[in-house]
């Protein structure tokens, strides 16, 4: 096993970890805004680290270029989606959870 393979494995594992934490957050967090925060982690840290880990394993530059393009579009689109969802919820008047409130 080379250094690159170990590094890629670590990145993939970290990415998988962030995806799982995002899922746990989606179930456990009390209101809409905190849940969106959790899901944002899945898209940015989770998918981003997995793509970086895969990038270290590629041998052909064409595949690497495609992974980089995917990464670029994920970086553009996923914050946009999260931002728009949160802004739409605010415009609709979804209340923000405060400590002591019940789960919604």
């Amino acid at each position: 096993m080379t250094v690159i393979e170990v590094l890629s494995g670590v990145l993939l594992a970290a990415g998988a970890f962030f995806v799982v934490t995002g899922a746990v957050g989606l179930v456990r967090f009390p209101d809409f805004y905190t849940r969106i925060h959790a899901v944002g982690v899945t898209d940015s840290a989770g998918a981003g680290l997995i793509l970086l880990g895969l990038l270290l394993r590629t041998t052909e530059w064409e595949v690497g270029l495609r992974l980089l393009i995917i990464l670029l579009f994920m970086v553009i689109t996923s914050p946009t989606a999260a931002h728009t969802l949160a802004q739409a919820a605010r415009r609709d008047g979804v209340p923000v959870w405060r400590a002591g409130d019940t789960r919604r």
């Binding site: 579009f73 553009i76 689109t77 946009t80 931002h83 728009t84 802004q87 739409a88």
Partner: peptide
């Protein structure tokens, strides 16, 4: 009306 969405979808 959402500026971020407008700019990003125009770019994409």
């Amino acid at each position: 009306d959402y500026r971020v969405l407008r700019v990003v979808s125009g770019v994409l």
